[in-house]
């Protein structure tokens, strides 16, 4: 109960993205929009930071070193906390409907087609519904 209440003030977003330029862009945009950001460079680090920080939303790239995006989702959904955390997949691969359904992914962003502004909107939606 208290956790749920406190979670309302949780503005932490975990960004798991291996490309430094894109990671920086999304981090700056999120920070500028009032969120606090935890950055991870690969899937394994992503999982570690997720369990440690319990972010409100996770932005997840798919093609990642060590553990890829699908691997992160697979692990995450087995965890008591991780099974419900909203995940927005950011990829330049075409939307994979199976992956979206199987891991109840909240949103699928094709990076080259999405505006930053719309990414932020999607994060806000995830928070409102999550």
């Amino acid at each position: 109960m208290l956790n749920k209440f406190l979670n309302k003030f949780n503005k932490k977003i975990l960004v798991i993205e291996d490309d430094p330029s894109l990671r920086q862009a999304i981090t700056d945009k999120l920070t500028g929009s009032g969120f606090s950001v935890v950055q991870a460079e690969d899937g394994e680090e992503g999982l570690r930071f997720a369990y440690k920080n319990h972010p409100r939303v996770i932005l997840l790239d798919l093609m990642l070193p060590i553990t890829d995006g699908a691997g992160v989702l697979d692990e995450l959904r087995k965890d008591e906390w991780g099974k419900d955390v909203p995940v927005i997949v950011m990829s330049n691969l075409l939307e994979d409907e199976n992956l979206v359904k199987r891991y109840h992914v909240f949103g699928y962003i094709v990076k080259s087609d999405w505006k930053m502004e719309d990414v932020i909107k999607k994060v806000r939606e995830a928070i409102a519904e999550g």
């Binding site: 330029s21 894109l22 862009a25 945009k29 691969l93 080259s112 505006k115 930053m116 502004e117």
Partner: peptide, 22 residues
């Protein structure tokens, strides 16, 4: 083409941020 999408995304996003006065 897939590989090209990453740097293109980067240009898109930074240009967008500069344009919106970030």
């Amino acid at each position: 083409s897939h590989q090209l999408r990453t740097p293109i995304s980067s240009i898109n996003w930074y240009a967008e941020m500069l344009l919106s006065g970030d």
